[in-house]
């Protein structure tokens, strides 16, 4: 068994490695960090530009392989290199993953719980009015791209603020950023301020989750509703609601739990649109910025992180599946 595990680990490491190499080479050959320095007014002398680029390991005059070797060496020591603004990639990523997590955690959990409940309810009351309402609304929400939904919600929030008279500095619902600058993050006032900043983006993130989970939970429940063991449970003497909750729901939750486990690992990756619209400085923003700024090292570092997280997500989801479904035990 350990031999198997080691083989698997080796395979996954190779995958991550290849992905990172590909990303680095693509970024290093296609992006142009030099333009960022040359585009200034007045343009700095070429020697100075070269020097800075060398220091940051972004000089396009150095052969790609050499730059890669230097970068890879750093990675193996735990250092992901320098950003194009002379900062540290490690620090950037480190700070931002927690921002993204704070942004997404609440929405993800709430969205899953509500979605599962809605889906289960809809399946049990199939074709009744409540089922139709849930299905229709999840349809419409699923059809809305996150960015559209985010803008709508943001504008609705601004509108609500104006309506309720919060026109000054202190608002009911904040639409930009994570916390009002200057507030103490851990004080009571700070926490409530954070919450006020979270409400709108959480709503956006939740909606997508609810719509997704309710549809899949509904179909998982419908599959289970026709199963033989549900009939056996009733034949034993359980009433239909008892049988549904104890037997059907428990079995139908398994696929949802595996989805959630997968998603959980990816919370650190952030949400590009939501962060952009609501002005949070998380990983999602870094994704986009690293490309627009031609920040090769950051691009490579982010790819490495995402690759690792995707694999962790898969593993976590398999683990949850094995934990919940005795048929799949190792």
């Amino acid at each position: 068994m350990t031999a198997f595990l080691l083989r698997r680990l080796a395979y996954l490491t190779v995958l991550v490695g290849v992905a990172t190499v590909v990303a680095y080479f693509l970024a290093a050959t296609q992006l142009n960090p030099r333009s960022r320095y040359e585009g200034r007014n007045p343009p700095p002398p070429p020697a100075a530009v070269d020097a800075i680029l060398d220091e940051l390991n972004l000089n396009d005059k150095t052969p790609v392989v050499e730059r890669f070797a230097k970068w890879a060496g750093g990675v193996l020591r735990g250092d992901l290199g320098r950003t194009i603004d002379s900062g540290s990639v490690n620090t950037e990523i480190n700070r931002r993953i927690w921002v993204s997590l704070r942004l997404m955690l609440l929405g993800s959990i709430l969205g899953t719980l509500l979605g599962v409940a809605a889906g289960a309810y809809g399946a049990i009351r199939q074709y009744r009015l409540s089922d139709h309402l849930i299905t229709v609304s999840s349809f419409v929400v699923l059809a809305m791209p996150t960015v559209v939904l985010a803008v709508l919600v943001k504008n609705a929030g601004i509108g609500l603020n104006d309506l309720l008279g919060f026109t000054g500095d202190w608002k009911l619902l904040y639409t930009t950023g994570e916390i009002t600058p200057g507030m103490d993050a851990l004080s009571l006032g700070g926490l409530s301020n954070r919450l006020a900043h979270l409400v709108l983006p959480t709503f956006v993130l939740m909606s997508g989750s609810i719509a997704f989970y309710s549809r899949y939970q509904r179909s998982a429940m419908l599959d289970v509703l026709g199963s033989d063991f549900l009939r056996t449970a009733q034949a034993k003497g359980l009433t239909r609601p008892q049988a549904l909750v104890k037997h059907a729901l428990r079995t139908a939750l398994i696929p949802m739990a595996t989805f959630f486990a997968y998603q959980f690992a990816l919370l650190f990756v952030g949400a590009t649109f939501t962060e952009r619209i609501f002005g949070w400085h998380g990983m999602g923003e870094l994704f986009v910025e690293s490309i627009t700024k031609s920040d090769v090292n950051t691009v490579a570092g982010v790819t490495l992180l995402v690759a690792v997280l995707v694999l962790v997500a898969g593993f976590l989801s398999d683990l949850v599946y094995a934990a919940l479904d005795p048929r799949v035990r190792v």
């Binding site: 995958l15 992905a19 590909v22 990303a23 296609q30 490309i291």
Partner: peptide, 22 residues
């Protein structure tokens, strides 16, 4: 399967974005 795994691990957004000048 290895090719599939590799493509799944690569962040498509980044890759396509980087290649967009092409």
């Amino acid at each position: 399967l290895t090719i599939i795994d590799l493509l799944l691990v690569l962040p498509s957004f980044l890759i396509i974005a980087i290649l967009s000048p092409l």
